[in-house]
Computed example of a mutant assay.
Amino acid sequence: MRPGDEIRVLPSGKTSSVARIVSMDGDRELAVAGESVTLTLSDEIDCSRGQVIVTAQAPLEVADQFESTIVWMDEVDMVPGRAYWLKIGTQTVSATVHEPKYEVNVNTQEHLASKTLDLNAIGVANITTDREIPFAPYSESRDLGGFILIDKISNKTVAAGMIHFALRRAQNIHWQAMDISREHHAMIKNQKPAVLWLTGLSGSGKSTIANAVERKLARMNRHTFMLDGDNVRHGLNKDLGFTEADRVENIRRVGEVAKLMADAGLIVITAFISPFRSERDMVRGMMQPGEFMEVFIDTPLSVAEERDVKGLYAKARAGQLKNFTGIDSPYESPISPELWIDTTKLTPDEAADLIIAKLIP
């Protein structure tokens, strides 16, 4: 790098030129790989931590979908579809790991079919990040091609990986700008978009309370839409079962739909067990700040099982229903929800009034 060289900042793509190269010993006429120097640019452009400065003639690739080799290092198996923190270079982004294409037998190099990766397993899988990042294949750069995955809840490093290449579909899909903004959608409805996320055990009363909330908001001339767990599985998510990976994908799809509806200016009311904190946090991250309201419909397991309006607990206890939350699949209670509803002390209408009071002070 020399003063006067044209540079580009990735992933923003903004360009400038090098005005000065500054070191502890004064200005320099040349800087090479491995040296620590300060670059003064000719223009005031944003260049924050994690972004990469490259010569304008030889930029890096930028993408948000990759094929990668992953070495799993945690005792808890990888969950396809779950969001992890991906740290690459000095940049940290949210990333989703898809079901492995195959697992590698380390002794024979044979490719084995696998739906997940367990401790010390090595596999090849696609990864999607929440935004485009500059990268280089690991074969060309360890710094910009190697990464680690961090569990968002425990903050443990769960895997290390190497990027092979960007997926072609990532390079051929571009965001289409729209003339009508989400702010305009909300303005003409005279309301602030929101996503009311009701979570709790089966039988806790989520759907009953959500229905009461929507009914009361309709009387206030608010524009709403309700997404219910059972109803969504009749259409959008009818191809999903109840394994941990399927539950993660179920909530991811619902989160994307809720985001689109919030963009349309609606108040979205959801009623989903959504048993895992990481997926509820993933949906929160999809929304604009302040638009996501987590409502914990807290009902003791014994009370929910006593209600058992759908007969599901009886089937689960009899072994006829596998992966049922609260029986043989865990429920992770919210730690700091926006609202905590104790259904042993409140009627559905009283609970709905509390939610609306929180939504519209």
Rank of each mutant, 00 (worst) to 15 (best):
H185I: 01
V22Q: 09
E29T: 15
L119K: 05
E140C: 08
L144M: 14
I355Y: 09
T128F: 06
M178N: 13
I122W: 01
S204R: 01
D228S: 11
I148M: 09
R233W: 02
R182F: 12
N250A: 00
P137I: 00
R284K: 15
M220S: 11
A258I: 08
A194E: 04
V22N: 01
I251N: 00
M287A: 08
M162F: 12
K238D: 05
A160H: 09
I88F: 00
R142F: 04
D43Y: 02
I335P: 06
A262W: 04
F276V: 01
T243Q: 07
V104E: 06
S48Y: 10
I341N: 09
R49I: 13
D263V: 08
V257Y: 01
H223K: 13
I356Q: 03
F272H: 05
E67I: 11
T199P: 02
D143M: 11
I360R: 02
D263F: 04
A166C: 07
L149T: 08
H223R: 13
S17A: 15
I341S: 09
A95G: 11
T243L: 04
M178A: 11
S274D: 06
M220F: 03
T199D: 02
I355L: 11
A352I: 03
D74E: 12
N250P: 00
V195L: 15
R28I: 02
K358C: 13
N221P: 00
I45G: 10
A63D: 00
T325E: 03
S204V: 00
S274T: 07
L117I: 07
T299M: 11
F292E: 06
S16C: 11
Y84T: 11
K156T: 13
R8Y: 00
K206R: 11
V254S: 05
M220V: 04
T38I: 12
L354W: 00
G34L: 03
V104D: 03
V303S: 02
W72N: 07
E35H: 12
Q57P: 00
L236H: 02
L240H: 06
D151C: 04
L339M: 08
A121K: 15
P348Y: 05
K152L: 09
S204K: 03
N237D: 04
D64R: 09
P300H: 10
L41Y: 10
N237A: 05
H111N: 15
M261R: 01
W175H: 10
H174L: 06
M226P: 00
V106Y: 03
V22Y: 02
P80Y: 01
E306Y: 13
P11G: 06
E99D: 11
A304L: 05
T129P: 12
R219D: 13
A351P: 10
V268K: 01
N323K: 00
Q176M: 10
A271H: 04
G13L: 13
H223S: 13
L86N: 01
K101T: 07
V268E: 00
K315L: 13
I360L: 15
I355G: 12
D5Y: 03
D64Q: 10
D353I: 08
R28Y: 04
E110I: 07
R277A: 15
A121C: 10
V9P: 08
K206Q: 07
R222K: 15
M78C: 07
T325W: 07
R222M: 13
E183T: 14
S12Q: 09
A95W: 08
K152C: 13
P334M: 07
